[in-house]
Amino acid sequence: MQVILGTKIGMTQIIGEDGVVTPVTILQAGPCAVTQIKTVQTDGYNAVQVGYGQGKNLSKSVTGHVKKAGENINPKVLKEFRVDELPEGVKLGDALTVESFKLGDKVAVTGTSKGKGYAGTVKRWNFNESRNTHGFKGNIRRVGSIGSMYPQKVFKGKKMPGRMGHDQVTVKNLVVAYIDVENNLIGLKGAVPGPKKGIVSVEGKE
């Protein structure tokens, strides 16, 4: 089963035998534990819940939930992966590592993008600035008109200043370019959403 959770370490480069330099993002991925298996008969859909990391001060509900998978499993993060059909042989407490991936596999990575705080329309939506010529009032980054004479309201979805970033982002078709089984490292060609030390999920296309 090609799913795993990990921590973003940062970006580096890999030089191939042909001399081509490939930018890669290194993730500290796994080992993860299977904490729950959902089926159509019991939950209405098929899914596998995975736990990652070592959490502290877990609530009683979470502690009781993951206890079924093993005594020493105290995950910091829990994430559910829906599947059409449950993989054969997967059971509670199984460990998921980078060994399930191989070089050249295409994966989808989901993470939380960097938060930019409160931003104006020029930064947030790439609006043009107003003309900065003689006689102009001077505020060249203001929004401008946001409505009309009719129907005398601002439509929902209007591009306005507001919070920017810190959204869930999924990048598809990233290629596995590096695997280190001993140190639980995996390298993906290209950029991965989120800051360093951010939690990301990697899901392959088996």
Rank of each mutant, 00 (worst) to 15 (best):
T97N: 09
A69K: 02
V192K: 06
K91Q: 12
S61P: 01
S145A: 15
V181R: 11
T112Q: 12
V98A: 02
E85Y: 05
K158L: 08
V109I: 14
M160V: 04
Y118L: 15
K106A: 14
F136H: 14
K106Y: 12
V66K: 04
D94C: 05
K67P: 00
T112M: 12
L185K: 15
K91E: 15
L78N: 09
G190K: 03
S61K: 10
S100G: 11
P87F: 00
G165I: 01
L103R: 11
K102V: 04
I73S: 03
F155E: 11
Y150E: 13
G64M: 07
K153M: 08
K123F: 03
D167L: 08
L188S: 02
E80R: 10
K79S: 10
V171Y: 02
R163S: 08
E129S: 13
R142M: 07
G187P: 03
L103V: 15
E99F: 06
A119W: 01
V107R: 01
L174M: 02
G187W: 13
G147M: 01
T97W: 05
H134M: 10
W125Q: 06
V62I: 15
D94E: 12
I186A: 03
L103H: 10
F101A: 09
R141F: 12
N128I: 01
T170Y: 07
V122N: 10
K91F: 06
V90S: 11
S59P: 01
N72I: 01
T133W: 04
